[in-house]
Design a protein around this nucleic acid. Structure first.
Length: 271
DNA sequence: AGCCAGGCCCATT
DNA sequence: AATGGGCATGGC
């Protein structure tokens, strides 16, 4: 099925290459293939229209969060000194509604890793544990990973993160961690709950909350945000926790979205 | 060749 | 609560 949408506040390259998601392939100018969970879509921007092609359009309408008005959010954030350039640069960024399980596993793997290799590992994982669909491999489910041991992950190149994934899968299987519990908690409690998982620390927890639970009042502090901190506050702050608090105080309830504009902007100078 | 990557775990203080 | 060392692997 195929359907058209307004391209207001929607630029595929900004959405996919701002670091929130890994299973995408550029197939042309503002034309991307995206795999989420066990579904695939093709997205292309043509002038002021977004053309979306997928078997499950409902899923991807929610995935792209088409109901949220980013003009309002950007208007608020632009008032913060130092954000305007980054927002202008990444004006087509939207925060996706990603699958919680896939996001948890993906961002455990993302820790102290580079994006190119993260993408490769997630493809390896899908190919070797997910089911084959029409022309792609679905992301593995919890059930498909419960029988995998540490060596399985090591062979896929996960390195020392193999133990984290294996433990996390086991805890989920034992029902000591329930994804649905997260929705019931406020952001702070949800963050603590997520950090029970092996391989989930403050930064990964923030990414999961931001990318899979629409919690915008977080601020993932990675190596890039550490570099950006000095530009905003003029000091070299060694305490990551304080950095996060300072950013959230400055950016407000949409700090997580501000962080995405900054991450995308800062990284663009390297690539 | 050596530093770095969307950091976390664990021991120690 | 906070600090510091160690860590698999590969991109650049």
């Amino acid at each position: 099925m195929i359907k058209e949408y307004s391209a207001k506040d929607f630029i595929p390259s900004h959405i996919f290459e701002c670091g929130q998601v890994f299973r995408y392939t550029k197939i042309g100018d503002e034309n991307y293939e995206i795999i989420s969970k066990d579904k695939k879509a093709i997205v292309e921007k043509q002038n002021d229209k977004i053309i979306l092609q997928a078997d499950d359009l409902d899923y991807f309408e929610n995935y792209f969060d088409l109901k949220t008005d980013y003009s309002e959010i950007k208007k608020e954030l632009e008032k913060v000194p130092g954000l305007k350039d980054a927002i202008e640069f990444g004006k087509g960024v939207r925060i996706l509604n990603q699958d919680p399980f896939e996001t948890i596993i993906s961002f455990i793997i993302s820790a102290n890793n580079n994006i190119k290799r993260i993408k490769q590992i997630l493809e390896n994982l899908s190919k070797s544990a997910g089911i084959k669909k029409d022309g792609f491999y679905a992301f593995p489910t919890l059930e498909q990973l419960v029988n995998k041991d540490v060596d399985f992950y090591k062979q896929l190149g996960l390195g020392y993160r193999s133990e984290y994934i294996e433990k996390t899968i086991r805890v989920m299987l034992d029902k000591q961690f329930l994804i649905d519990e997260i929705r019931e908690k406020d952001t702070s409690d949800a963050r603590e709950y997520l950090m029970q998982l092996s391989g989930v620390g403050p930064k990964v927890a923030d990414c999961i909350l931001l990318f899979a639970f629409q919690r915008y009042d977080v601020c993932p502090i990675d190596t890039w945000m550490k570099k950006i901190y000095f530009e905003f506050f003029g000091i070299n702050e060694p305490n990551v926790h304080k950095m996060r608090d300072d950013f959230i105080q400055l950016f407000g309830e949409h700090a997580g979205i501000a962080q995405q504009y900054l991450f995308f902007y800062k990284r663009s100078f390297v690539d």
